[in-house]
């Protein structure tokens, strides 16, 4: 084994900002939030890369309608799959899902293999120039999380965006994740409360299916910025599921979604922190 130099991985040489999307709890919408932040940033003309380190349950290929795509190797490393290339904005995705033969295949790996894979994902992907790299994570505080923290030790990531749902069972796990961030020195950029209310399409009455306000209470209790509440919107799911059928440009389609305004606001709050570019 070679001795690690104390520097960031070369593949992240031209990446200006790195955000991690974390949550202790599963199924709260980490991948959905990651997708929407990516679509919003790309829609605003930014160059965005998305790295999926959920190895046993990768959701991003499905979220971006990229199932069945493959990864190719170049001299610089693995080439991520390009989802969108606009005049200014671009959107590239890397996930273990692209390396599987069949979408139903399971990846039954213990820790050391996951660690090795994450190392490759941080070192060997040819991202090129990016304004933002978003890293989507699996639930928990285990191998994947320890590994990515180790790989990014010298890479100065901007910090972590924490996703929760409103109920106590979720916020309890999210508290653990925030303690993890403190231990590994990830700055917490803020908390997003997802699945916060559902507006009935029949009568427009809003029901708090997973109760309400848990994310905001958590951010007050821990003195962390609250980035916003995102309601359940079945039309977003529909857009995701139908993208392969319509062949529409999803970045443009997302601009017409009700959730776009909410995520623009969330990104504004994060950008107002004026975290200097890693390249500065």
């Amino acid at each position: 084994m070679s001795i690690e130099p104390n520097g960031p991985p070369a593949s992240l040489r031209d990446v200006k900002h790195i955000y991690l999307i974390l949550s202790g709890k599963g199924g709260v919408g980490k991948s959905s939030v990651t997708t929407q932040i990516a679509l919003t940033l790309a829609g605003l003309g930014k160059k965005v890369g998305v790295l999926d380190i959920d190895l046993t349950g990768p959701s991003l290929p499905r979220m971006f309608g990229l199932e069945g795509q493959s990864i190719y190797q170049s001299a610089e490393g693995w080439i991520p799959v390009t989802k969108y290339e606009g005049e200014q904005g671009t959107l590239k995705v890397m996930s273990l899902g692209f390396l599987l033969d069949d979408r139903g295949n399971s990846v039954v790996w213990r820790g050391p293999k996951k660690t090795a894979m994450i190392k490759q994902f941080t070192k060997d992907v040819a991202w090129g120039k990016l304004d933002y790299l978003l890293i989507d994570t699996p639930p928990g505080t285990s191998d994947e999380h320890i590994s990515i923290a180790e790989e990014l030790r010298w890479a100065k990531p901007d910090g972590a965006i924490i996703v929760t749902t409103p109920q106590n069972v979720a916020t309890a796990d999210v508290r653990k994740e925030i303690n993890f961030c403190r231990k590994v020195n990830f700055d917490v950029l803020g908390i997003i409360e997802n699945m916060s209310g559902f507006v009935c399409p029949h009568c427009a009455e809003c029901t708090n299916i997973f109760s309400k306000g848990g994310g905001e209470r958590l951010s007050k209790a821990l003195d962390i910025e609250f980035l916003g509440s995102v309601p359940i919107d079945p039309s977003f799911v529909e857009m995701i599921e139908k993208q392969s059928l319509t062949n529409a440009n999803i970045v443009d389609a997302y601009r017409n979604q009700a959730l776009f305004a909410i995520f623009q606001q969330i990104i504004k709050v994060v950008q107002e922190k004026n975290i200097p570019s890693r390249l500065a």
């Binding site: 559902f198 009568c203 029901t207 079945p234 799911v237 139908k242």
Partner: peptide, 17 residues
């Protein structure tokens, strides 16, 4: 499936596409 408590209308929150 979710039944709205105020109008009893049913919606599919997590659509079985």
């Amino acid at each position: 499936g979710f039944v709205c408590p105020s109008c009893k209308g049913e919606s599919q929150i997590f659509k079985p596409t």
